Amino acid sequence: MTLPYAEVIGDPIVQSKSPAIHNYWLGTLGIAADYRAAHVTAEGLESYLAKRREDPLWRGCNVTMPHKQAVMPFLDRLEIGAEMVGAVNTITRRERSGEVRLIGTNTDMAGFMEPLLPMLETPHYFRMARVLGTGGAARAIVAALAEQGVMVVLAGRDPAKARAILDEIDPEGEHHVADLSHFADPTDFAFDDREGCFDLVVNASPLGMAGQPPLLFDLTHAPPGSIFYDIVTYPADTPLLQAARGAGFRTIDGLSMLIGQAAVAFEKFFGSPPPRDDGDAGLRALLAK
């Protein structure tokens, strides 16, 4: 029997945990469907989407590096979040009256914010985040934080690109840019009293991922009480998180964002919310194997 299916696409793709996540949920719910990984290069992206458009069994795909912006010209419509962020991480196929439309969505915003929202329910005197990276995920993260009144310092190898992202996503915000190398060396900056403040450090780049160069971030750049959030998932416990935890900082791993955004995409693909009653403990145990 041929089953409905969804996919994750990227280049590379071997490191993706999305098939394990979605197939775990499909199996738990007893849904007769499949979720796969597809290696798609930049040159093959247009052809891939054209073929899948014609496949009635294809429910859509998640989009990972480096295609989150490149897919946009090949889609028929962008949902509001994707349009605001300027990046797509989920594509769904919709057919009505014989017409097929590919819809671009961004679930990264919801996935990233899921573990942070309980902390942001409390009012703060000041909210600040140092976000490292300027790719598609960083765009979603900046948009999500700006919605919560967080002042962002966006750091990248090209500060001009970082400034363009901030100006496009939140032109009225009082945000700042920095060269990524600024955070590599120690600082003797004396942080003021952080009582009642919310401070966040986010690695939104692939640096620190297995096979990628390390992320050079000296912990002296983090105010006391900062939360470290690394969206890298391979490995989930990155060198940045290990160092931050060893210094007494609270940490959030990339599986939190990955599972959160996958939950939104899963319902779009398969029409049912995923089973998460155990707080994702069973899924995390599977992914740790």
Rank of each mutant, 00 (worst) to 15 (best):
T92F: 02
T92I: 15
R93Q: 02
R94D: 06
R94Y: 03
R94L: 13
R94F: 08
R94K: 15
E95I: 14
R96W: 10
R96N: 15
S97H: 10
G98E: 01
G98F: 10
G98Y: 01
G98S: 07
V100C: 12
R101K: 14
R101D: 06
L102K: 03
L102A: 07
L102D: 02
L102V: 06
L102Y: 00
I103L: 15
I103S: 05
G104Q: 13
G104C: 10
G104E: 03
G104R: 05
T105C: 05
N106L: 01
N106E: 02
N106D: 04
N106A: 00
T107L: 07
T107E: 01
T107F: 00
T107G: 04
T107W: 00
D108C: 04
D108V: 04
D108Q: 05
D108S: 06
M109N: 00
M109Q: 13
M109D: 01
A110Q: 14
A110H: 10
A110C: 10
F112W: 14
M113C: 06
E114F: 08
E114L: 14
P115G: 06
P115E: 12
L116D: 03
L116I: 13
L117M: 12
L117C: 06
L117R: 15
P118N: 08
P118Q: 01
P118G: 11
P118A: 07
P118L: 07
M119G: 00
M119F: 10
L120N: 03
E121I: 03
E121S: 12
T122R: 10
T122A: 09
T122Y: 03
T122M: 10
P123F: 08
P123D: 08
P123W: 05
H124W: 08
H124P: 00
H124L: 01
Y125V: 11
Y125W: 07
F126Q: 09
R127M: 09
M128G: 02
M128K: 12
M128T: 12
M128C: 04
A129M: 08
V131M: 12
V131L: 09
V131Q: 07
T134W: 11
T134C: 13
G136R: 00
G136K: 04
A137I: 06
A138I: 12
R139H: 09
R139E: 03
I141L: 09
V142P: 11
V142S: 01
V142Y: 07
A143N: 05
A143Q: 04
A143L: 15
A144I: 12
A144D: 06
A144Q: 00
A144E: 12
L145C: 13
L145T: 05
A146N: 15
A146W: 09
A146E: 04
E147K: 13
E147F: 05
Q148M: 13
Q148Y: 03
Q148A: 11
Q148I: 08
Q148N: 01
G149D: 11
G149Y: 04
V150Q: 01
M151F: 07
M151C: 11
M151W: 00
V152C: 14
V152L: 13
V153Q: 15
V153S: 13
V153I: 15
L154Y: 14
L154E: 12
L154C: 08
A155C: 09
A155S: 13
G156M: 14
G156L: 09
G156R: 08
G156V: 11
G156F: 07
